[in-house]
């Protein structure tokens, strides 16, 4: 058999990669875990407790809230946009939207924040042109940040869901009509259930993207919107209080746990929604 002959040898080809990940990724994660449970040199859950109280808890909840909102809004709006593009008869429109989505989904970080500041910030072009300042408009709050996060989330959802929409066969819609179903009934009983795995997958990606976003928030709102990534950064750089580095580690662990929880909810849902695929 080929596997027994070349298998043991070729397995070594993957060894450098695995060793690299264990050291460069594994060691920091272990240290993170160790540091979380260490206070003044001894084992303690004090850091973890502190990370789940007061301003830290608010920040963690704020991150979860904005991420969930972005995930839901982005998934829904992105799907509508994708459907509009997929059902269009203009091939060029489809290509253009898909290429633009590829670019915009990667358009995060500091440049994104600045583009929005230049648009809807206090002296942004749209703000000053329309005089939005007089109506009390501000970009630097929870909703402003949501608006900005959607800018890369919707294109990401488009990229995720277009293959699934392409997979919806026209026969299904016709067969449904033939059986007396209205458009809404087709979507209710066939279209949406068939799309659900892709929609869930997209929503989880969007949640993860918004949850771990730091650069955009840092450049845009500083600390006016409480977010866990901003708290971690402050604690790490000793911006607020010296000696809170280990609370940063505890907060990081909180984040990983939240990400894990999302996966724990997502995977069974995914399996259930895709049971007809297996």
């Amino acid at each position: 058999m080929r596997d027994s002959r070349t298998g043991s040898k070729s397995r070594w080809a993957a060894a450098p990669l695995l060793a690299f990940v264990v050291i460069v990724f594994g060691v920091p994660m272990l240290v993170l875990l160790g540091g979380t449970f260490t206070k003044e040199g001894t084992f303690s859950t004090a850091n973890l407790t502190e990370s789940l109280q007061g301003a830290y808890l608010t920040a963690l909840l704020g991150s979860v809230k904005i991420s969930a909102l972005v995930a839901v809004l982005g998934a829904v709006l992105g799907t509508f946009l994708a459907q509009a593009v997929v059902t269009s008869r203009f091939r060029a429109l489809r290509e253009a939207v898909l290429t633009a989505s590829g670019v915009l989904a990667n358009f995060g970080g500091v440049p994104l924040a600045f583009a929005w500041i230049a648009t809807l910030g206090n002296s942004g072009v749209v703000t000053t042109t329309l005089g939005l300042g007089d109506y009390g408009w501000s970009l630097y709050n929870f909703w402003g940040l949501t608006l900005v996060y959607l800018y890369f989330s919707i294109p990401l959802q488009v990229l995720t869901v277009v293959p699934a929409l392409d997979g919806l066969r026209p026969q299904w819609r016709e067969a449904a009509q033939n059986n007396g179903a209205s458009t809404w009934q087709f979507w209710r009983y066939v279209g949406i259930p068939v799309l659900t795995p892709a929609l869930l997958g997209g929503a989880v990606l969007l949640f993860g993207g918004a949850f771990s976003a730091y650069a955009t928030a840092q450049a845009m709102v500083g600390s006016t919107v409480p977010l866990v990534t901003l708290k971690i950064a402050d604690a790490l750089t000793g911006n607020v209080l010296i000696g809170h580095e280990n609370v940063a580690l505890a907060l990081s662990l909180d984040m990983i746990v939240v990400a894990g929880l999302v996966m724990a909810v997502y995977l069974p849902l995914q399996r259930r929604s895709a049971r007809w695929l297996r």
């Binding site: 596997d3 993170l32 993860g208 949850f211």
Partner: peptide, 27 residues
């Protein structure tokens, strides 16, 4: 030669997506 390594690599290559970069840099 080693298709059994595939799931291992899949996990290894998914972890950095699940773990937020800021927690990685904290470590």
């Amino acid at each position: 030669g080693a298709p059994r390594l595939r799931p291992v690599l899949e996990v290894v290559c998914t972890l950095p997506l699940v773990v937020p970069p800021i927690t990685f840099v904290a470590g």
